[in-house]
């Protein structure tokens, strides 16, 4: 009953449940006191005030957009003095010393700057970076693509956070790499990522979703029809698209399809009937029939799937899902 008190106070319960709670409150002093506490906290939180965005924020945003969208015509050379006399020896020495200092500064900057490319190693066959055949090692720079044919595989070392094995028949690009984000784009084929890093540091775009690492081992396959399939071996990965994201835990999988988006996470050891029903529900308009099968086949562990589905169905179906979830909890 305690769990129902907050939704009751917040007006989130249906009429029947609300009247049940109200009846219970008449008889239960502890719950009445708890209700008072909730009401008090809710009223206190209601005192929160909006804080208007400071003046000039939008102008900053516009300026940044302008700056980023303006096409760089390249650095304009500064004015160059010409003619005149040759400098004397002292000036030459000063220029040489200055050159050395500048060279040293540039070298230090290059060495200390974060890498803008990732190391690629051929594991089998001859993977190609930008069409360059590669039987050993190469570097994949930002904006470049690595391709493997039917008989080749490659490994990309993702800075110091992990590595990604690229399967045969794949095309993968490096979108960005730096201290805040490493992002690949898997256009087709398969990859297996082993990453040990803070959440959201390693991301992979596919044509239908973005896989966001939360510290894990996972495989991602993009088929010819652009369908993305994520399978998580350890840890967690989020599959995101269009503001919707689905957290996929260890042992679970999730698909995303073109024109539809991200589907429902489901444990791979679920029954065949449940897996099939989830596929029909997500991508083939399976509707109520598929939902019935999902509810009937769900085990307690499949609460993962039911909770995700509860967010996407109408109120009547949501009640069915919740009711099943309650049964599974017992």
């Amino acid at each position: 009953m305690t769990d129902a008190l907050l939704p009751y106070v917040d007006g989130e319960l249906g009429a029947t449940q609300a009247s049940r709670v109200a009846e219970h409150l008449l008889a239960c002093r502890a719950c009445r006191e708890e209700c008072d506490r909730i009401r008090f906290a809710a009223r206190a939180a209601g005192a929160l005030k909006a804080v208007a965005a400071p003046y000039g924020v939008f102008e900053n945003i516009e300026a940044t957009i302008d700056k980023e969208s303006s096409t760089s015509a390249g650095a304009t050379a500064g004015p160059v003095e010409s003619g005149g006399r040759w400098p004397n020896a002292a000036v030459w020495v000063a220029v040489a010393v200055l050159d050395l200092l500048i060279f040293g500064l540039i070298a230090w900057t290059v060495v200390s700057a974060p890498p803008s490319a990732l190391e690629v190693t051929a594991l089998e066959g001859s993977p190609k970076v930008q069409q360059r055949g590669n039987t050993g090692r190469d570097m994949l720079a930002v904006g470049e693509w690595l391709e493997t044919d039917a008989s080749s595989r490659a490994r990309i070392r993702v800075a110091d956070i992990g590595q990604v094995e690229i399967g045969p028949g794949s095309r993968v690009g490096l979108v960005t790499t730096g201290p805040d984000e490493h992002r690949l784009s898997l256009e087709r084929g398969s990859m297996r990522a082993v990453v040990v890093a803070p959440p959201r540091l390693f991301l992979v775009d596919t044509p239908t979703a973005t896989a966001v690492d939360y510290g894990c081992v996972y495989t991602l396959v993009v088929s010819d029809d652009a369908r993305s399939t994520l399978r998580v071996a350890t840890g967690r990965v989020a599959l995101e698209r269009d503001g919707r994201d689905v957290m996929v835990p260890e042992g679970a999988m999730c698909e995303a399809r073109k024109g539809i988006g991200v589907g429902t996470p489901v444990y791979e050891d679920a029954s065949e009937a449940l897996l099939e029903a989830v596929r029909r529900f997500d991508f083939e308009g399976g509707g109520a029939t598929a939902l019935s099968t999902i509810l009937a086949e769900a085990r307690p562990r499949d609460a993962l799937t039911l909770e995700a589905i509860a967010l996407r169905v109408n109120e009547a179906e949501r009640r069915q899902v919740r009711s099943r979830l309650e049964q599974l909890k017992r």
Partner: peptide
């Protein structure tokens, strides 16, 4: 925002929303 909307905005289940709000209320009280 309703519980549904919070769940959608945060990418969590409604059950998790209710649980977090519950804990939040207790702490605030």
């Amino acid at each position: 925002l309703s519980y549904d909307e919070i769940a959608e905005a945060l990418g969590i289940s409604m059950g998790t929303v209710a649980s977090r709000l519950n804990r939040g209320h207790r702490a605030l009280a």
